[in-house]
Computed example of a mutant assay.
Amino acid sequence: MKTQIYVDDRCGNVYEIPHGQITLKRARNGRAASMEFEYYEDSTVTEFPINTGYVVLMKADDMRIFYGYVFKVSMTKITCYDQLRYLKFKDSKVFENKTLTEIVNIIAGENLMLLGNVADTKYVIPKQISDNTEYLDMIVKGIETTLLSTGRLYFIQDNVGFLELMDIDDTKLDILLDGNGNITDYDITTDIDTDTYNCIKLVQDNKKTEPREYPYQDFASIAKWGKLQYFEVVDEKYNMAQINEKGNNLLKLKNREKKTFKLKNAIGDIRCRSGYSVYINMPEQGIDGWYLIDSDTHKFNDNEHTMDLELVVVNCITA
């Protein structure tokens, strides 16, 4: 696979840069994609030194793969991030009666970002207060609220310069991973340590009375794993129906083992990126189903393309 890197100095000058290994890292939510590449100090670099803030485009076989900005320059490596890096800044916002779609549109507009495909989430979030919070975390909070209320899971991505909000139901890849060649080095983990809870405790503050507690439990699971409690204070404006919906949905979502599949040093496929799902069939391991790519690392070096993927069982309320 032939790779190309172009650098724009924002003054109308664009150069193709000689480079060595490229490492591209992405995660499903809450983190900007990064691209690091080795570069050669030759006449091109001497004529056109790479500085922070420059725009970078990476192609593979003439396909646009990454568009971002230089954030770190060393003597031998350049580190770039996509535009999600600019959503790491903090602000205070109150969103009332807005859908996740509208929240993404507002944040993108205020930060002068170009929008690509933005899913219509439809569900109206009554109120979301974010004080001294990163823009990315505001969006992630909206994603979590929408998941608990609708059972649908969304994620954001930068698609070569365009901010997108995607529904995981629309990102299943026509890719089968099995033990017949494309899975050789892997690790499978099952745990209840990361994000598993079988007791949900919601508390609602009330200015006139003592705070009220609402527990939602699975006693069979508690007997099996011990008590794993999730605690949250809900908005005082929530009515009983909203509290019950949130509590029951949290229990459905959290009362599961987390199953992680790590694929290492596999033959690369540029379609495999965080937020997209692949089908894994390994009967000897009891695995047969869709797995969501939670993070991906692609390495391009001397026409060789390999990838490491961390995948999880698709964990939705409706799953």
Results as ranks from 00 to 15, higher is better:
Tyr276Asp: 00
Tyr123Ser: 04
Phe66Glu: 01
Leu136Trp: 08
Ser149Thr: 06
Lys122Asn: 11
Tyr276Val: 01
Gly247Tyr: 13
Phe155Thr: 03
Asp296Lys: 00
Met282Gln: 09
Gly247Glu: 06
Ser43Gly: 03
Arg271Val: 03
Gly53Tyr: 06
Cys80Arg: 04
Ile22Gln: 03
Asp167Leu: 10
Lys264Val: 04
Lys2Glu: 13
Ile192Asn: 09
Ile270Ala: 06
Thr133Ile: 09
Thr133Ser: 05
Ala60Ile: 13
Phe261Tyr: 14
Asp62Pro: 00
Gln83Leu: 14
Ile50Gln: 02
Asn301Ile: 08
Met75Val: 09
Ala60Ser: 05
Tyr216His: 03
Asn180Lys: 12
Lys224Pro: 00
Ile175Lys: 04
Asn301Met: 12
Asp62Gln: 05
Ile175Arg: 02
Met63Gln: 05
Glu257Leu: 12
Ile22Trp: 09
Phe71Arg: 00
Phe231Ile: 07
Glu144Pro: 01
Leu100Met: 09
Lys264Asn: 13
Ala241Gly: 00
Val234Met: 06
Ile129Gly: 01
Leu309Val: 04
Ile125Phe: 12
Asn117Asp: 14
Ile129Gln: 12
Tyr69Gln: 01
Arg256Phe: 12
Asp178Glu: 07
Asn182Lys: 09
Asn248Met: 13
Tyr291Phe: 15
Glu310Asp: 14
Ile183Tyr: 05
Glu232Thr: 02
Ala32His: 07
Ile107Leu: 14
Glu210Ser: 13
Thr101Arg: 11
Asn198Leu: 10
Asp131Asn: 12
Glu96His: 07
Ala32Phe: 11
Lys237Phe: 13
Lys259Thr: 13
Arg212Lys: 15
Glu96Gln: 15
Gly30Gln: 07
Val94Gln: 12
Glu236Thr: 09
Gln204Asn: 06
Ala119Val: 14
Thr121Trp: 12
Val278Gln: 02
Asn51Pro: 00
Asp218Gly: 07
Leu24Lys: 03
Ala220Pro: 00
Asp296Pro: 01
Lys88Phe: 14
Asn132Pro: 01
Leu311Ser: 04
Tyr214Gln: 03
Leu100Ile: 10
Leu309Trp: 04
Asn180Tyr: 15
Ile243His: 07
Tyr291Thr: 02
Glu257His: 06
Asn159Pro: 00
Ile5Ser: 05
Val278His: 02
Tyr276Glu: 03
Trp225Glu: 02
Val160Gln: 08
Ser43Cys: 02
Val124Glu: 11
His298Ile: 12
Asn111Asp: 05
Gly289Tyr: 04
Gln217Lys: 15
Gly30Leu: 11
Tyr6Asn: 02
Asn206Glu: 06
Asp178Ile: 07
Leu84Ser: 06
Leu202Val: 11
